[in-house]
């Protein structure tokens, strides 16, 4: 059985771990390159993207992780995690540039504009409850990006090859369908 890691630099990583356990997969927190080497897939959790970026660079994890993503390791970024995976962020180059999307940080406004809304997701018969916390907006998605859900006309769940991103937080609900979708990407 594959082991799915959750980047545990800063943010809501424990919620992802709980969700993965609920899906019945083995999981572990990843902070160091030697821990990354033990997992077959990785989740980049929500948190603060600037903080995560800084910690990734200083822990020596950035390079080996960028390499693994290039080699096709399935990776799922939620909110701040999606920002780290994006090609461009606020019109500047993103950190991993692993998915062809342009994102704008905190684009719905400040915390008082954080919101909940029901989302239609491709392939799900019932809507998914989206929790958006100081969420980014995906302003543009390239033609090779599969948009799986939209809110107000913009992608909020998208996939390209081995990379899945959500601008909302499925880990803050009891609904494991999006995590299962990610787990299906592991072969």
């Amino acid at each position: 059985m594959p082991k799915v890691g959750v980047l545990a630099m800063q943010g809501a990583f424990i919620e992802h771990i709980k969700m993965l356990k609920k899906c019945g997969v083995k999981t572990m927190e990843v902070r160091l390159p030697k821990e990354l080497a033990k997992v077959q897939a990785l989740i980049l959790p929500g948190g603060e993207s600037t903080s995560n970026r800084k910690l990734l660079e200083e822990s020596g994890l950035f390079k080996p992780l960028a390499e693994r993503i290039k080699q096709g390791m399935p990776i799922f970024g939620t909110c701040a995690g999606a920002i780290l995976l994006a090609k461009t962020v606020d019109s500047k180059p993103g950190l991993f540039q692993a998915i062809d999307i342009s994102v704008k940080k905190n684009a719905y406004g400040r915390q008082i504009d954080s919101f909940e809304a029901e989302l239609k997701v491709k392939g799900f018969p019932k809507p998914f409850h989206g929790v958006f916390i100081r969420a980014p907006i995906i302003e543009q998605a390239g033609k090779n990006v599969d948009v799986l859900s939209e809110f107000e006309g913009r992608a909020v769940l998208a996939k390209q090859n081995n990379v899945l991103v959500a601008t909302f937080h499925p880990e803050l609900t009891d609904d494991a369908r999006i995590h299962r979708l990610f787990l299906e990407m592991i072969k």
Binding site: Q10, G11, A12, I14, E15, G47, E48, Q111, V131
Partner: peptide
């Protein structure tokens, strides 16, 4: 309350 708790959760480990 959910989105209030949510922001606190995003601050964890920080």
């Amino acid at each position: 309350y959910k989105v209030k708790l949510g922001l606190a959760q995003m601050l964890k480990g920080g």
